[in-house]
């Protein structure tokens, strides 16, 4: 039984990843892991892979087929599963240290990959959290090429400002701290709450991750928000919509020159596309 599991491990892992990917694509959650530009490619290759998986079962697992017979000839190593793992072990004594080591590694490796596969298929999909935002240091890098410039923003309408995302405002804050630039420019953004180390009781970062390829490369961007005693009503990782305006930071504990002061802040559901692209 375990020999068969080891033999079929690759096909099982492909099947689990394909099923997981297709289910995520159908439910619109594949974007929790990869950029939307890859969705069609991923689904296409998953379908091709699924055809190979089913063909593998049809041709290699059919009791009436020649799999068992063929397997004896595969790689010329006989039906010994350890020899299949490492042909140099063929003919060695079953109790030799090399064989025992190979058996142990094969068993542990297979068990580990199957555990990961099991979690991939049963755990609910999730976005990255404030733990990664803090670990990757919010606003520690630039914000890429798709940014708002101060010159363009200076002539934008109120309607345009209210559509600006966390990324747009974060890029403007990096370019200018002139308070007159932000005067009478209404801001309305959705993001999740991440800790602000300067004054963690009265300030937080309204945060989003910016993704270029997949969640692995997610960069946290955030705008500093000032709201006295915000922890009384909200918690880290809560998704919220914040309406307000940018102005001078009232916090004496922070070196952040400009913050978003809150007119209204309400909890919201996590967006269907939680990352910005």
């Amino acid at each position: 039984m375990w020999r068969n599991v080891i033999r079929w491990n690759g096909i099982i892992l492909v099947a689990v990843t394909i099923v997981s990917s297709l289910w995520l694509a159908v439910t619109g959650q594949l974007v929790l892991y990869i950029h939307p530009r890859y969705v069609i490619f991923t689904v296409t290759m998953a379908i091709i892979g699924l055809a190979f998986v089913l063909a593998s079962f049809a041709m290699r697992a059919d009791p009436g087929g020649d799999d068992d017979h063929d397997h004896d000839h595969d790689h010329g190593v006989g039906s010994d599963p350890l020899a299949e793992l490492d042909p140099t072990l063929t003919g060695q004594d079953a109790s030799s240290p090399a064989r025992r080591r190979a058996a142990l590694f094969a068993t542990l490796g297979t068990a580990l990959t199957l555990v990961i596969a099991f979690t991939l298929i049963v755990l609910p999909p999730a976005t990255l959290s404030s733990a990664t935002a803090g670990q990757r240091s919010i606003n520690s890098t630039g914000v890429g090429s798709e940014i708002q410039s101060v010159d363009d923003a200076a002539t934008a309408t109120d309607g345009a400002f209210s559509a600006f995302t966390v990324l747009d405002w974060a890029s403007l804050l990096r370019q200018t701290t002139d308070t007159s630039f932000y005067a009478e420019k209404p801001a309305s953004m959705v993001g999740f709450i991440a800790d602000h180390p300067d004054d963690s009781d009265n300030m937080f970062y309204l945060t989003r991750f910016v993704v270029t390829c997949c969640a692995v490369d997610a960069q946290p961007v955030g705008v500093p928000v000032y709201l006295e005693n915000w922890r009384a009503e909200f918690a880290i990782d809560d998704w919220v919509q914040v309406d307000g305006e940018f102005g001078t930071n009232p916090s004496r504990a922070s070196t952040e020159p400009i913050v978003l002061t809150v007119d209204d802040m309400v909890p919201v559901e996590q967006p269907a596309e939680p990352y910005l692209w």
Binding site: V14, T17, I18, S20, S21, L24, L30, L32, Y33, I34, Y38, F41, T42, T44, M45, A46, I48, G49, F52, I116, T119, L120, L123, A126, T127, L128, S129, S130, A131, T132, C213, C214, A215, V216, D237
Partner: peptide, 23 residues
């Protein structure tokens, strides 16, 4: 959070790589 993010990052690598591996 750290464990959940570890899994999300690992799944992301696997799911992103799968189509290229199949190709």
């Amino acid at each position: 959070n750290a464990l959940q993010d570890l899994l999300t990052l690992s799944y992301s690598v696997i799911i992103e790589s799968l189509p290229f591996v199949i190709l």
